[in-house]
Amino acid sequence: MPRIVLPGDKLADKPLRIDNATLEDGKSYATVPGLFDDEKESFIPLESVWYPRMEDSVIGIVEDARNGVYTVALNSPFKGLIITRRDSNGPELEVGDVVESIVRSVKRESDKIILILVRPRNLHEGKVITVKPSKVLRIIGKANTMIKLLTEGTKSNIVVGMNGIVWIKGGNVPLAVTAINRIQAEAHVAGLTERITTMLKESQ
């Protein structure tokens, strides 16, 4: 059974390969609230800052557009960069546009970290909400089960960025927002899928 741990709690008397752990004198300690399974040595963060990985699908807002180079705000400490070639047939982006893209690489510039983003797709007219990055996997669900449930129950088009930005268009947008907020609030309580199923059914 996993146990709830908070920053500073000892996870193991040995080094563990866990992002949300810190090592001191050969022992591992939690750095964020999470669920730790002592047997499997697995850690599920209950709160965390999104830390980018290659191939993460993200949603951002275009902040700056100059000569085909776009700066994208990502609900993250780090900015994204989309670099388009003049001859490419990628979308024309404007400041304020909501754009979905893929993290190609995480670059350490002289003074900060920058994410190179590729395959941009402009998302129009939807509603954008932010969620906790630690809840994104729960909103998507194992093998996309939860996101399928949401899409079918609301008839909305929903795109979830790993960075905690969600775009919702069409169908019952307010219901989709309520359901996503409920998933965030109850992510750690068993039987979530059943409760969301019931909620979506009752709201139809």
Binding site: I61, A73, L74, N75, G96, K127, V128, I165, P174
Partner: peptide, 23 residues
């Protein structure tokens, strides 16, 4: 950490239908 979200098109769409967020 937070982005300033942009919901202009969505809100305009709602207003066109005579409603607002949270109906």
């Amino acid at each position: 950490m937070q982005v300033k979200v942009n919901n202009r098109e969505y809100i305009s769409g709602l207003l066109g239908k005579g409603t607002r967020e949270t109906t």
